[in-house]
Write a protein that binds this DNA or RNA. Sequence first.
DNA 1: CATGAATGAGGTTTCATTCAT
DNA 2: TATGAATGAAACCTCATTCAT
Lengths: 193, 193, 193, 193
Amino acid sequence: MPRIVDHDKRREELAEAACKVIAKIGVGNLRLMDVARQAGCTTGTLQHYFPNKQALVIASVTYLTERLEKNLKNLHVASLDDLRAYLLEMLPIGRRRSADVVVWLNFWTMALTDKDARAVQSESHKIWVRRLCEYLETLQAQGEISSKTDLLQEAEAIIALVDGLAMRAVLDPKEWPKSRLSEQVDLHLERLR
Amino acid sequence: MPRIVDHDKRREELAEAACKVIAKIGVGNLRLMDVARQAGCTTGTLQHYFPNKQALVIASVTYLTERLEKNLKNLHVASLDDLRAYLLEMLPIGRRRSADVVVWLNFWTMALTDKDARAVQSESHKIWVRRLCEYLETLQAQGEISSKTDLLQEAEAIIALVDGLAMRAVLDPKEWPKSRLSEQVDLHLERLR
Amino acid sequence: MPRIVDHDKRREELAEAACKVIAKIGVGNLRLMDVARQAGCTTGTLQHYFPNKQALVIASVTYLTERLEKNLKNLHVASLDDLRAYLLEMLPIGRRRSADVVVWLNFWTMALTDKDARAVQSESHKIWVRRLCEYLETLQAQGEISSKTDLLQEAEAIIALVDGLAMRAVLDPKEWPKSRLSEQVDLHLERLR
Amino acid sequence: MPRIVDHDKRREELAEAACKVIAKIGVGNLRLMDVARQAGCTTGTLQHYFPNKQALVIASVTYLTERLEKNLKNLHVASLDDLRAYLLEMLPIGRRRSADVVVWLNFWTMALTDKDARAVQSESHKIWVRRLCEYLETLQAQGEISSKTDLLQEAEAIIALVDGLAMRAVLDPKEWPKSRLSEQVDLHLERLR
DNA sequence: CATGAATGAGGTTTCATTCAT
DNA sequence: TATGAATGAAACCTCATTCAT
């Protein structure tokens, strides 16, 4: 019997360590050594789980996405207020989620010039749009949103807003407390009513 | 005097070369060698104009910003339509501006974890907000925008939208032709009328 | 006792796996991982049978030599034609023997700069010379070879020819089908008649 | 003006250093550090001249070949004795040429499993065969060799002999002084008369 | 006997920076 | 001002070997 280790769980632990480091210093400055130290292992260990640095970064973002999915799974969007809560859940409120947003921004930027990263990014964007559309459809069916509204267009508008706000907020966290983010979200959702 | 002019001009040429390379491969992968090749000189030459790599990157973004300023100097915003045109000028329409946006995104992400970059980013954001507010004030004075509107809030909303759209558009250019970007801008400006 | 037999058999299996890998990628690129995969076990298993990598390589060549011995045991050299058949048996004809030759060449080259390998190589060369001399003596006794011939010298000439041909043949297999190898052997044996 | 260096000459110096190291420890154990130390530079310097280790090895053998070419350029083969002298020039007689042969054997073995190396090896073999054929033709025209002889076949036979002898001689230098190598060459050339 | 996770040293490779010319 | 060779540190990556299970 080998040393007993849940391979997938270990991968997640390492991915999480990588996320922490990326949030702190950025993908551009990421060193495997740092990740290893954060995870309490050696760089050699990282190679068991990830063939190279790029794979580690991609796995880290995938992990982040999956963790978010789990958290959101329980949120049911049955009203505009639910949607509001849902969107606030995406924004950098608090340390943890600010860190997540930083990782995402790093990854998206990486995706601008890295094919593999872009494929991953593209896939998760599609899921995100689809879900938002579903929510909007539900609300439209309930009459909370005008039947004339172009839902896909609104979904993309919301995404642009959330991404844009998130970026602003992590670049200047002091200027963007939860209240100000909420106001922007409210202001935007107003037009759907 | 002429020497100085040449010197500054050369700096700009080098900065432009750096922008091209960043747009192609990202700041994270930027090598001075690549910039030198793109500029048709050697890495040694770069040292005459920039003390180090970071300075080159910052100078490149500064150059980009100044170039944009020049282009926008002639745009006078005297109506919502002017504002619309102005915003479209920020979005990645065409090769050139797409490349610019890629550079900016790279720089903003860099600013997340690099103090110097953040200072530069912060400064140019302030200018950008201030100008937008001025425009909105003008429009409000002319009655194109309701007097009840919170202009700063709207300015930030516009910036979030533009940043968010720009990011989406460069990540998936095929899905974001000019027409679709215009629609989003129009949809947003609607609420100001 | 049966344990021991199994143990030796397993060693041979592992040695054979190592030979296959060496033939494919060369000793220089040999990784225990590859051998383990080829053998359907793990690197840990290899440690039970071989104290280290070098020992595995040497054992592999030893295994190869012993396998060849077994095959040749049945060949009796009682005429020049028998000698011819015997020599052809050494040459890279067919996949299996080409692979064997590749392993040997790898090992010989390794022996150029590795003491342990050289000792093994030297030993097996001596055996090979001695046997060839015996064969030639038999033939000389039978009058198939002139009594004036310096048998040791001829034995070494034959070995040089076989080694040289073998090397050429594995470096350029398409140019060296069985027929061409046979011709060279025949041309050489001619002078003994 | 840059530090004045003859780029090609520097490459040769580094290649020569690599040859020395390979002759001592084999390609399999070759470390760039060793080459750098031998050449009196750093590993970084090696990268200016060779993109990677493989390229360095290939360049080294190419250098070796070219050096041999220069030495042989002056040898004119107008008689069997000249041919004999020519062949002896290929064999590992003396430190220098023994080292060369070791490098070649290492390279040929590398060529067994490395495409790039094989291409180089193949090319230099062709040249070597062609030249030998020319020599044999000359001798045949002069009547020193029977007109019935298949020259290509004899050329390949000679090459096999030389390669095989060279390998034996470097594996067991004490057993293979110049005299013994000469005898083998003489014995072989006998059949051409 | 077997596993395979973990180690950690060692090597290749990269590249910003320096500096003699 | 410009060159580009050289440096040397730093990082990634490899992989034989160890060892807990």
